[in-house]
Amino acid sequence: MKRIQKFSMLTVLASVAAFALQPAAPVQAEEGPTVKKVKERGEVLCGVHQGRYGFATADSEGRYKGLDVDYCRAVAAAVLGDSEKVKYIPVSSVTRFPALQSGEIDMLSRTTTVTLTRDSSLGLNFGPPTFYTGTGFMVRKAAGVEKVEDMGGATVCVVPGSTTEKNIAALFRSKNMQYTPVVIENQKEMVGAYFSGRCDVMAMDQAGLPGHRQFDAKTPDDHIILEGVFSKEPLAIGVRQGDDQWYDIIKWVTYATFNAEEMGVSKENVDEMKNANNPDIKRMLGTSGDLGKKLGLDNDWAYRVVKQVGNYKEIYDNNFGANSPLKLERGLNNLWINGGLMYGFPMK
Protein backbone atom coordinates (compact mmCIF):
# COMPACT_ATOMS: atom_id res chain seq x y z
CA MET A 1 0.00 0.00 0.00
CA LYS A 2 2.68 2.39 1.04
CA ARG A 3 4.73 1.67 -2.03
CA ILE A 4 1.85 2.28 -4.38
CA GLN A 5 1.05 5.52 -2.67
CA LYS A 6 4.59 6.75 -3.04
CA PHE A 7 4.79 5.68 -6.63
CA SER A 8 1.59 7.43 -7.69
CA MET A 9 2.62 10.53 -5.82
CA LEU A 10 5.93 10.62 -7.65
CA THR A 11 4.24 10.16 -11.00
CA VAL A 12 1.93 13.06 -10.31
CA LEU A 13 4.82 15.22 -9.19
CA ALA A 14 6.87 14.34 -12.22
CA SER A 15 4.08 15.08 -14.67
CA VAL A 16 3.22 18.31 -12.94
CA ALA A 17 6.87 19.34 -12.98
CA ALA A 18 7.21 18.43 -16.63
CA PHE A 19 4.18 20.52 -17.42
CA ALA A 20 5.27 23.46 -15.32
CA LEU A 21 8.85 23.51 -16.56
CA GLN A 22 7.87 23.60 -20.18
CA PRO A 23 8.25 27.03 -21.70
CA ALA A 24 4.93 28.80 -21.47
CA ALA A 25 3.79 28.12 -24.98
CA PRO A 26 1.52 30.86 -26.25
CA VAL A 27 -2.05 29.76 -26.99
CA GLN A 28 -1.33 30.75 -30.55
CA ALA A 29 2.22 30.11 -31.54
CA GLU A 30 4.10 32.74 -33.51
CA GLU A 31 1.72 32.47 -36.40
CA GLY A 32 2.74 33.60 -39.82
CA PRO A 33 0.46 36.07 -41.51
CA THR A 34 -3.08 34.86 -42.01
CA VAL A 35 -2.48 34.75 -45.76
CA LYS A 36 0.15 32.07 -45.27
CA LYS A 37 -2.20 29.95 -43.20
CA VAL A 38 -5.03 30.43 -45.67
CA LYS A 39 -2.81 29.40 -48.57
CA GLU A 40 -1.53 26.32 -46.75
CA ARG A 41 -5.06 25.33 -45.89
CA GLY A 42 -6.36 26.21 -49.33
CA GLU A 43 -9.50 27.63 -47.75
CA VAL A 44 -10.73 30.83 -46.17
CA LEU A 45 -12.57 30.19 -42.89
CA CYS A 46 -15.38 32.70 -42.95
CA GLY A 47 -17.74 33.32 -40.02
CA VAL A 48 -21.27 34.01 -41.31
CA HIS A 49 -24.79 34.44 -39.97
CA GLN A 50 -26.77 31.29 -39.14
CA GLY A 51 -29.54 32.52 -41.36
CA ARG A 52 -30.58 36.02 -42.33
CA TYR A 53 -32.10 36.61 -45.73
CA GLY A 54 -29.97 38.77 -47.98
CA PHE A 55 -26.87 38.45 -45.79
CA ALA A 56 -26.33 34.72 -45.41
CA THR A 57 -28.64 31.76 -45.86
CA ALA A 58 -27.90 28.17 -46.73
CA ASP A 59 -30.10 26.51 -49.33
CA SER A 60 -31.35 22.92 -49.20
CA GLU A 61 -28.05 21.66 -50.57
CA GLY A 62 -26.03 23.60 -48.02
CA ARG A 63 -24.82 26.24 -50.47
CA TYR A 64 -24.48 29.63 -48.85
CA LYS A 65 -25.85 32.76 -50.46
CA GLY A 66 -25.98 36.40 -49.45
CA LEU A 67 -24.10 39.67 -49.36
CA ASP A 68 -21.89 38.66 -46.43
CA VAL A 69 -21.23 35.37 -48.17
CA ASP A 70 -20.22 37.16 -51.37
CA TYR A 71 -17.53 39.02 -49.45
CA CYS A 72 -16.13 35.72 -48.16
CA ARG A 73 -16.05 34.56 -51.77
CA ALA A 74 -14.43 37.80 -52.96
CA VAL A 75 -11.60 37.40 -50.44
CA ALA A 76 -11.11 33.75 -51.46
CA ALA A 77 -11.04 34.80 -55.12
CA ALA A 78 -8.41 37.45 -54.39
CA VAL A 79 -6.18 35.32 -52.17
CA LEU A 80 -6.66 31.77 -53.46
CA GLY A 81 -7.86 32.45 -56.98
CA ASP A 82 -11.13 30.59 -56.51
CA SER A 83 -14.23 32.06 -54.92
CA GLU A 84 -15.49 28.58 -53.99
CA LYS A 85 -12.57 27.90 -51.64
CA VAL A 86 -14.42 29.11 -48.58
CA LYS A 87 -15.44 27.16 -45.53
CA TYR A 88 -18.48 28.83 -44.02
CA ILE A 89 -18.76 28.69 -40.27
CA PRO A 90 -22.11 29.85 -38.93
CA VAL A 91 -21.65 31.84 -35.73
CA SER A 92 -24.25 33.33 -33.40
CA SER A 93 -24.32 36.90 -32.18
CA VAL A 94 -22.63 35.67 -29.02
CA THR A 95 -20.03 33.28 -30.43
CA ARG A 96 -18.84 35.45 -33.30
CA PHE A 97 -16.17 37.49 -31.50
CA PRO A 98 -14.61 34.65 -29.49
CA ALA A 99 -14.53 32.62 -32.73
CA LEU A 100 -12.55 35.36 -34.44
CA GLN A 101 -10.31 36.11 -31.45
CA SER A 102 -9.38 32.47 -30.98
CA GLY A 103 -8.51 31.98 -34.65
CA GLU A 104 -11.38 29.62 -35.39
CA ILE A 105 -12.26 31.85 -38.34
CA ASP A 106 -10.07 34.06 -40.53
CA MET A 107 -12.67 36.72 -41.12
CA LEU A 108 -16.03 37.66 -39.67
CA SER A 109 -18.54 38.60 -42.33
CA ARG A 110 -21.71 38.51 -40.29
CA THR A 111 -23.88 41.64 -40.11
CA THR A 112 -21.47 43.05 -37.56
CA THR A 113 -21.79 46.71 -36.59
CA VAL A 114 -18.55 48.60 -36.11
CA THR A 115 -18.40 50.28 -32.71
CA LEU A 116 -15.57 51.87 -30.80
CA THR A 117 -15.61 49.21 -28.08
CA ARG A 118 -15.52 46.34 -30.54
CA ASP A 119 -12.71 47.99 -32.49
CA SER A 120 -10.60 48.60 -29.39
CA SER A 121 -11.18 46.30 -26.42
CA LEU A 122 -12.10 43.25 -28.50
CA GLY A 123 -8.78 43.40 -30.31
CA LEU A 124 -10.42 43.60 -33.73
CA ASN A 125 -10.11 45.66 -36.89
CA PHE A 126 -12.95 46.39 -39.24
CA GLY A 127 -12.86 46.89 -42.99
CA PRO A 128 -14.94 49.49 -44.82
CA PRO A 129 -18.67 49.01 -44.22
CA THR A 130 -20.22 46.70 -46.80
CA PHE A 131 -23.76 47.61 -45.80
CA TYR A 132 -25.40 50.53 -44.00
CA THR A 133 -28.57 49.94 -42.05
CA GLY A 134 -30.14 50.76 -38.69
CA THR A 135 -32.35 49.19 -36.06
CA GLY A 136 -35.80 48.50 -37.42
CA PHE A 137 -38.98 47.12 -35.92
CA MET A 138 -41.55 44.69 -37.21
CA VAL A 139 -45.01 44.60 -35.59
CA ARG A 140 -48.31 42.95 -36.30
CA LYS A 141 -50.66 45.15 -38.29
CA ALA A 142 -53.47 44.33 -35.89
CA ALA A 143 -51.55 45.97 -33.04
CA GLY A 144 -52.25 49.38 -34.60
CA VAL A 145 -48.69 50.64 -34.17
CA GLU A 146 -47.68 53.39 -36.57
CA LYS A 147 -44.69 54.95 -34.91
CA VAL A 148 -42.17 54.15 -32.20
CA GLU A 149 -44.16 56.09 -29.61
CA ASP A 150 -47.01 53.57 -29.91
CA MET A 151 -44.83 50.73 -28.69
CA GLY A 152 -44.96 51.54 -24.96
CA GLY A 153 -45.38 48.39 -22.85
CA ALA A 154 -44.56 46.08 -25.73
CA THR A 155 -42.63 42.82 -25.49
CA VAL A 156 -39.66 42.97 -27.84
CA CYS A 157 -37.81 39.97 -29.31
CA VAL A 158 -34.12 40.57 -29.93
CA VAL A 159 -30.86 38.60 -30.16
CA PRO A 160 -28.41 39.04 -27.27
CA GLY A 161 -25.08 40.76 -27.53
CA SER A 162 -26.21 42.77 -30.53
CA THR A 163 -25.99 46.50 -30.91
CA THR A 164 -29.76 46.29 -31.46
CA GLU A 165 -30.18 45.13 -27.87
CA LYS A 166 -28.47 48.27 -26.61
CA ASN A 167 -30.22 50.52 -29.13
CA ILE A 168 -33.70 49.58 -28.01
CA ALA A 169 -32.71 50.04 -24.36
CA ALA A 170 -31.56 53.57 -25.18
CA LEU A 171 -34.53 54.33 -27.47
CA PHE A 172 -37.24 53.24 -25.04
CA ARG A 173 -35.44 54.98 -22.20
CA SER A 174 -35.19 58.26 -24.10
CA LYS A 175 -38.91 58.10 -24.91
CA ASN A 176 -39.69 57.21 -21.30
CA MET A 177 -41.47 54.01 -22.30
CA GLN A 178 -41.51 50.59 -20.69
CA TYR A 179 -40.85 47.37 -22.57
CA THR A 180 -39.99 43.77 -21.89
CA PRO A 181 -37.08 42.31 -23.81
CA VAL A 182 -37.12 38.62 -24.72
CA VAL A 183 -33.55 37.74 -25.54
CA ILE A 184 -32.91 34.56 -27.52
CA GLU A 185 -29.50 33.72 -28.93
CA ASN A 186 -30.67 31.31 -31.63
CA GLN A 187 -31.82 33.43 -34.55
CA LYS A 188 -34.42 30.91 -35.70
CA GLU A 189 -35.88 30.54 -32.21
CA MET A 190 -36.00 34.31 -31.83
CA VAL A 191 -37.81 34.87 -35.14
CA GLY A 192 -40.11 31.94 -34.32
CA ALA A 193 -40.90 33.49 -30.95
CA TYR A 194 -42.06 36.69 -32.66
CA PHE A 195 -44.18 34.96 -35.30
CA SER A 196 -45.77 32.64 -32.72
CA GLY A 197 -46.87 35.73 -30.81
CA ARG A 198 -44.52 35.59 -27.84
CA CYS A 199 -43.43 39.13 -28.67
CA ASP A 200 -45.30 42.14 -29.99
CA VAL A 201 -42.26 43.52 -31.73
CA MET A 202 -39.20 42.06 -33.42
CA ALA A 203 -36.15 44.30 -33.48
CA MET A 204 -33.13 43.80 -35.73
CA ASP A 205 -31.16 45.53 -38.45
CA GLN A 206 -33.85 46.91 -40.69
CA ALA A 207 -32.44 45.31 -43.81
CA GLY A 208 -32.98 41.88 -42.26
CA LEU A 209 -36.69 42.38 -41.59
CA PRO A 210 -38.21 42.19 -45.10
CA GLY A 211 -36.70 38.75 -45.65
CA HIS A 212 -38.15 37.35 -42.47
CA ARG A 213 -41.53 38.86 -43.26
CA GLN A 214 -41.48 37.39 -46.74
CA PHE A 215 -40.27 33.90 -45.91
CA ASP A 216 -41.12 33.23 -42.27
CA ALA A 217 -44.54 34.83 -41.81
CA LYS A 218 -47.66 32.79 -42.50
CA THR A 219 -49.26 35.85 -44.07
CA PRO A 220 -46.62 38.51 -44.75
CA ASP A 221 -49.31 41.19 -45.07
CA ASP A 222 -50.19 40.80 -41.38
CA HIS A 223 -46.89 42.40 -40.43
CA ILE A 224 -45.53 45.87 -40.99
CA ILE A 225 -42.03 47.27 -40.73
CA LEU A 226 -42.02 50.64 -39.01
CA GLU A 227 -40.94 53.61 -41.09
CA GLY A 228 -37.58 55.04 -40.20
CA VAL A 229 -34.26 53.77 -38.98
CA PHE A 230 -33.45 54.10 -35.29
CA SER A 231 -29.69 53.82 -35.07
CA LYS A 232 -26.56 53.78 -37.16
CA GLU A 233 -25.44 50.28 -38.06
CA PRO A 234 -22.49 50.27 -40.42
CA LEU A 235 -21.88 46.55 -41.06
CA ALA A 236 -18.34 45.55 -41.88
CA ILE A 237 -15.94 42.64 -42.04
CA GLY A 238 -13.95 42.05 -38.87
CA VAL A 239 -10.44 40.63 -38.56
CA ARG A 240 -8.00 40.17 -35.67
CA GLN A 241 -5.57 42.95 -34.84
CA GLY A 242 -1.91 42.25 -35.44
CA ASP A 243 -1.98 41.09 -39.05
CA ASP A 244 -1.89 44.22 -41.14
CA GLN A 245 -1.50 42.46 -44.47
CA TRP A 246 -4.69 40.48 -43.98
CA TYR A 247 -6.49 43.61 -42.82
CA ASP A 248 -5.29 45.47 -45.93
CA ILE A 249 -6.52 42.69 -48.20
CA ILE A 250 -9.98 42.75 -46.61
CA LYS A 251 -10.07 46.52 -46.93
CA TRP A 252 -9.02 46.70 -50.58
CA VAL A 253 -11.14 43.77 -51.72
CA THR A 254 -14.10 45.71 -50.38
CA TYR A 255 -13.00 48.93 -52.07
CA ALA A 256 -12.42 47.04 -55.31
CA THR A 257 -16.11 46.07 -55.42
CA PHE A 258 -17.14 49.71 -54.92
CA ASN A 259 -14.63 51.02 -57.45
CA ALA A 260 -15.60 48.42 -60.02
CA GLU A 261 -19.19 49.59 -59.85
CA GLU A 262 -18.16 53.22 -60.04
CA MET A 263 -15.98 52.58 -63.09
CA GLY A 264 -18.61 50.47 -64.77
CA VAL A 265 -16.68 47.21 -64.53
CA SER A 266 -18.98 44.23 -64.12
CA LYS A 267 -18.87 40.43 -64.23
CA GLU A 268 -19.87 40.53 -67.89
CA ASN A 269 -17.52 43.16 -69.26
CA VAL A 270 -14.50 42.65 -67.01
CA ASP A 271 -12.57 40.78 -69.69
CA GLU A 272 -12.99 43.63 -72.19
CA MET A 273 -12.36 46.23 -69.53
CA LYS A 274 -8.98 44.70 -68.78
CA ASN A 275 -7.74 46.35 -71.91
CA ALA A 276 -9.96 49.43 -71.81
CA ASN A 277 -8.36 52.73 -72.56
CA ASN A 278 -8.57 53.83 -68.93
CA PRO A 279 -5.42 53.78 -66.75
CA ASP A 280 -7.41 53.53 -63.49
CA ILE A 281 -9.29 50.46 -64.64
CA LYS A 282 -6.17 48.85 -66.04
CA ARG A 283 -4.31 49.43 -62.80
CA MET A 284 -7.14 48.01 -60.74
CA LEU A 285 -7.55 44.92 -62.90
CA GLY A 286 -3.81 44.36 -62.98
CA THR A 287 -3.16 44.92 -66.68
CA SER A 288 -0.69 47.58 -65.62
CA GLY A 289 1.03 48.57 -62.38
CA ASP A 290 1.82 46.34 -59.43
CA LEU A 291 -1.01 46.87 -56.93
CA GLY A 292 -1.23 43.13 -56.30
CA LYS A 293 2.39 42.86 -55.27
CA LYS A 294 1.93 45.64 -52.75
CA LEU A 295 -0.78 43.61 -51.04
CA GLY A 296 1.27 40.41 -51.26
CA LEU A 297 -1.07 38.97 -53.89
CA ASP A 298 -0.75 38.44 -57.60
CA ASN A 299 -1.76 41.20 -59.99
CA ASP A 300 -5.06 39.62 -61.07
CA TRP A 301 -6.67 39.66 -57.64
CA ALA A 302 -9.18 42.41 -58.33
CA TYR A 303 -9.96 41.01 -61.75
CA ARG A 304 -10.89 37.70 -60.14
CA VAL A 305 -13.03 39.42 -57.53
CA VAL A 306 -15.11 41.11 -60.20
CA LYS A 307 -15.08 38.14 -62.56
CA GLN A 308 -16.10 35.55 -59.97
CA VAL A 309 -18.22 37.58 -57.58
CA GLY A 310 -19.10 40.90 -59.23
CA ASN A 311 -19.08 44.59 -58.43
CA TYR A 312 -21.03 46.04 -55.50
CA LYS A 313 -24.14 46.70 -57.58
CA GLU A 314 -24.24 43.10 -58.74
CA ILE A 315 -23.69 41.82 -55.21
CA TYR A 316 -26.43 44.09 -53.87
CA ASP A 317 -28.91 43.38 -56.63
CA ASN A 318 -28.49 39.62 -56.33
CA ASN A 319 -29.15 39.62 -52.60
CA PHE A 320 -31.35 42.63 -51.85
CA GLY A 321 -32.23 44.44 -55.06
CA ALA A 322 -33.87 43.79 -58.39
CA ASN A 323 -32.64 40.20 -58.81
CA SER A 324 -33.72 39.12 -55.32
CA PRO A 325 -37.19 38.52 -53.92
CA LEU A 326 -36.67 41.38 -51.45
CA LYS A 327 -36.44 44.25 -53.97
CA LEU A 328 -35.01 46.73 -51.47
CA GLU A 329 -34.05 50.24 -52.56
CA ARG A 330 -30.34 50.91 -52.28
CA GLY A 331 -30.70 54.05 -50.19
CA LEU A 332 -27.55 54.58 -48.15
CA ASN A 333 -25.97 51.64 -49.89
CA ASN A 334 -25.80 53.48 -53.18
CA LEU A 335 -22.54 54.86 -54.51
CA TRP A 336 -21.55 58.30 -53.22
CA ILE A 337 -22.08 59.74 -56.70
CA ASN A 338 -25.71 58.56 -56.52
CA GLY A 339 -26.38 59.97 -53.08
CA GLY A 340 -25.31 56.95 -51.03
CA LEU A 341 -22.37 56.27 -48.73
CA MET A 342 -20.39 53.73 -50.74
CA TYR A 343 -17.10 55.39 -51.52
CA GLY A 344 -14.18 53.35 -52.81
CA PHE A 345 -10.77 54.80 -51.96
CA PRO A 346 -8.45 55.36 -54.91
CA MET A 347 -6.57 52.27 -56.00
CA LYS A 348 -3.27 53.81 -56.90
Partner: peptide, 22 residues
Protein backbone atom coordinates in the same frame (compact mmCIF):
# COMPACT_ATOMS: atom_id res chain seq x y z
CA UNK B 1 -30.30 30.42 -22.53
CA UNK B 2 -31.81 28.45 -25.43
CA UNK B 3 -35.32 29.70 -24.90
CA UNK B 4 -34.43 33.16 -23.67
CA UNK B 5 -34.76 32.81 -19.91
CA UNK B 6 -32.47 35.51 -18.50
CA UNK B 7 -30.43 33.27 -16.21
CA UNK B 8 -26.77 33.69 -15.34
CA UNK B 9 -25.53 32.16 -18.59
CA UNK B 10 -27.86 34.27 -20.69
CA UNK B 11 -26.82 37.53 -19.03
CA UNK B 12 -23.22 36.34 -18.88
CA UNK B 13 -23.19 35.66 -22.61
CA UNK B 14 -24.56 39.11 -23.36
CA UNK B 15 -21.96 40.64 -21.06
CA UNK B 16 -19.25 38.57 -22.70
CA UNK B 17 -20.31 39.78 -26.08
CA UNK B 18 -20.82 43.44 -25.24
CA UNK B 19 -17.49 43.70 -23.44
CA UNK B 20 -15.57 41.07 -25.40
CA UNK B 21 -13.99 39.77 -22.20
CA UNK B 22 -14.68 36.10 -22.65
Amino acid sequence: VLIGYPDLVNVGNTTLNQTGQA
